[in-house]
Write a protein that binds this DNA or RNA. Structure first.
Length: 531
RNA sequence: GGGCGGGUGGCGAAGUGGCUAACGCUGUGGUCUGCAAAAUCACCAUUCACCGGUUCAAAUCCGGUCCCGCCCUCCA
């Protein structure tokens, strides 16, 4: 695999320190807020990297930190009059809610600043000892000019930076670019005891300390958003390499930004979208698809239309999945001879699988990989449309193709499945509606058939009729209660028209789905039996 | 001001020296369908911001011009 390394500015072949093992550190969120879409991009990008490396046979050791001691957290906690660490804990919990919904695998270790104070204090002490840092009245600063390679990641010289510096210079610092390793405690701030008095760590030191603690003094990949290149990652390198005298990270990966109407989305500009709100409107796999349909280093513009387009595009892939599943219907285990068409079909699938891998190997080119997935869907659909499913060989071929197709979609995390109780109830209710509609169609009662389809369409459920029956498809699960109401309304009409056998049929089917119906003088009452 | 990246069809987005410029969305026509939907087949950029150069060959390399985003300050 080749990876674009920010350090060299080039794509380089991935050569891990240990064979078949990759050690990755990704900068996680500062926990003072619900995460927004901009935070979600690196989560999904590096989760995809992780899945892909696993798929390619690597053992992946993945560490993602929480910065739970920070100016913004303290400010927010003071505003709300609560303890800073308590606020952090709250948003860490909320982080996991959102990340789980997005299908982000948990890291092997999620270290927090607050739990590594001794390690951080030791590190700061060591840096002072070695002349890379100095103390002034309870503050400790890193001495930038003592570290030779300063600026190698962000490709800037110290002189350039001094010239363009917009920061208010702290006169006590030896160099304007020296940055804080330890900050002296002020009133109403959480603090920890140290050899320099009560205080707390500066922003960058935690990542140097925690990454090397869990992954070693040198590790393979460090990732994060492009805005972290300077100063955060530049400073991480300076601290870590000053401390160990060894190269800190071999491959630096940075994702591009999400913009809103061509303007950077950020908490400070106030134009950010909270991930949770987006996940309430669109399924997680659609959001993932949107985030990786563009190469990770490119900027990505966001608006509602983008998710809608992603939804439609992904629906095409998932439709192929469903068509293929229906085609094999559990007969997959059979062994059978493949005819020429089926063999050619599988050859094509293998070749597209190879193309997918080739794309992913080229700096995680998910955009191109997805392109190959669409070609695979096309190949699959064409075969399904032309090969009779009565041939066992065809079913075997589709089964194998489906396995490949699904595996690749799972690498990207775009074939997420939700099957819980709610879904079962919905499936059952939809099935009643479909049966009702089939009966109407058989009786040439197209008015009722179309009405059912139209009403379902209002609930964003599409009805499709095929030679072997109808099916309901949806990306967003409809509300079970509304479906029950719908069925009861139809039943009410049957009753009014004195079609009691039809009305009773609906009631019986609803009972099968654990819906209890009571006809009262005031009207119909119902409830789920297990609710 | 300094640094980095980018401008590809109606839209989104790959491609970085040589086959018909992927793929998706949208749109158009045919098949299928009670009608639809899905699926399927076909069509939709002689052209890659602009100008000049290198080369047998450039969207891809070089020079210039215009425009856009990001970083240099907390930020994914």
């Amino acid at each position: 695999m080749r990876i674009h390394n920010t350090l060299s500015g080039r794509k380089e072949k991935l050569q891990t320190l240990n064979e078949n093992e990759v050690r990755i550190y990704v900068c996680g969120p500062t926990t003072y807020n619900l995460i927004h879409l901009g935070n979600a991009r690196p989560l999904v990008v590096f989760d995809t990297l992780r899945r892909y490396l696993s798929y390619r046979g690597y053992r992946v050791i993945y560490v993602q930190n929480f910065t739970d001691v920070d100016d913004k957290i303290i400010a927010r906690a003071n505003e709300e009059g609560i303890d800073a660490l308590q606020l952090s804990q709250h948003y860490i919990d909320e982080y996991f809610v959102d990340a789980d919904r997005l299908g982000i695998m948990q890291a092997d270790i999620h270290p927090r600043v607050s739990e590594h104070m001794n390690d951080i204090i030791d590190a700061v002490g060591k840096l002072i000892e070695r002349g890379y840092a100095y103390e002034i009245d309870g503050d400790v600063y890193f001495r930038v000019r003592a570290f030779d390679g300063y600026g190698k990641l962000s490709k800037r010289s110290l002189d350039d930076m001094r010239a363009g510096a917009r920061i208010a210079v702290d006169e006590r610092k030896q160099d304007p670019l020296d940055f804080a390793l330890w900050k002296k405690a002020r009133a109403s701030e959480p603090s920890w005891d140290s050899p320099w008095g009560a205080g707390r760590p500066g922003w960058h030191i935690e990542c140097s300390v925690m990454s090397t603690k869990y992954l070693g003094e040198t590790f393979d990949i460090h990732g994060g958003g492009a805005d972290l290149i300077f100063p955060h990652h530049e400073n991480e390198i300076a601290q870590a390499e000053a401390m160990t005298g060894k190269p800190f990270v071999n491959y630096w990966m940075h994702n591009g930004f999400i913009t809103i109407n061509q303007e950077k989305m950020s908490k400070s500009l106030g134009n950010f979208f909270v991930l949770r709100d987006i996940l309430d409107k669109y399924p997680a796999d659609v959001v993932r698809y949107y985030l990786i349909a563009t190469h990770y280093r490119s900027p990505l513009d966001f608006d509602d239309g983008k998710l809608e387009e992603a939804r439609r595009a992904l629906a095409r892939l998932k439709n192929s999945l469903q068509l293929a599943e229906e085609f094999i219907q559990g007969d997959e285990a059979e062994a059978a001879e493949l005819d020429e068409q089926a063999s050619a079909f599988l050859t094509e699938i293998s070749s597209l699988e190879a193309s997918f891998i080739e794309a992913m190997d080229d700096d995680l080119n998910t955009a191109m990989a997805i392109g190959h997935l669409f070609e695979m869907a096309h190949t699959l659909n064409s075969f399904l449309a032309s090969a009779p499913r009565s041939e066992a060989g065809n079913r075997v071929a589709v089964f194998r193709a489906l396995q490949t197709f699904r595996a690749l979609g799972d690498v990207l995390g775009i074939f997420m499945k939700v099957d819980d109780e709610e879904k079962k109830a919905v499936e059952g209710l939809l099935d009643i509606l479909l049966q009702l509609r089939s009966r109407a169609r058989q009786q040439k009662n197209f008015a009722l058939a179309d009405e059912i389809r139209d009403i379902l369409s209002e609930h964003e459920v599409r009805v499709e009729d095929g030679p072997e029956g109808s099916r309901a498809r949806y990306e967003k699960e409809p509300d079970a209660s509304e479906l029950v109401e719908l069925l009861l309304a139809i039943r009410g009409r049957f009753k009014a028209e004195k079609q009691y056998d039809q009305a009773d049929w609906v009631r019986d089917r609803l009972m099968d789905q654990n819906v209890i119906i009571e006809d009262t003088r005031e009207g119909v009452r119902w409830k789920f039996a297990d609710a």
